[in-house]
Amino acid sequence: MTFEPRIVGFLCNWCSYAGADLAGVSRISYPTNIRIIRLMCSGRVDPVFVLETLANGADGVMVMGCHPGDCHYVEGNLQTERKIKMLKKLIARTGLEPERVRLEWVSASEGGRFAELVKEFTNQIKALGPSPLVGEKPDPNILEDLLAAKATAGDFRLRVLVGKEKGMIDDGNVYGEEVSQEEFDKTMDEAIDAEYVRNKIYLMVRKEPLSVKELSKRLDLDPQAVLRHMVVMRRRGMVTVDRIEGTTPLYAALEVGR
């Protein structure tokens, strides 16, 4: 049986959803695989939505908005751009292919373009193959990766960075100093790395208490780096020492609740 990808699309009401409408009005055919969710603005797309969708077995996710400059809500799409950029960096650290997520600009008059993009993406996903998270037995490692990514995307640090990115780059920081995109990207990349690893650690020590040595083996990271993360996580109340075996502390997760 040929593989039929399951694709979910998050489309903005004013441009891309209307573009999809026009494709229909113009009777332009495209593969049936996509299921469209209507939002008012592509800016509404929280990276967590995309990760949740992927974690539940979507083979591909499309996010579509208005062309830059055309956003019905002025700049929502520019925020989307930055969020998806961050999201892709995050996914790149998991075992899932970042190409399964695609951001495109489609205007209300681009029915043909909408159909083309859906066709192209569907074929791309067909070639990529089913998501490792589909079906009765999703790949447990990648699933864990994705859940860690979801937690990371839902965390304060990355969200505040992405949220403030445009303002900082356009208008400078609170001291009136210029912040360049490269500078910002460096900070963002470090934050993504750090928070993702921390969330992975969290998920791991939630299952069973583990030592720094064991964690560094499983994560393929330097033990010193892992220890630094543990220190931060302890301070944040994410982990605590469960017990000590010989001279080795074992860490367990604390329920991080509200």
Binding site: M40, G43, R44, Y73, E75, G76, Q79, R159, V162
Partner: peptide
Amino acid sequence: CGTCGASCP
């Protein structure tokens, strides 16, 4: 538009 909702840390 929902941009704030998607961005709130």
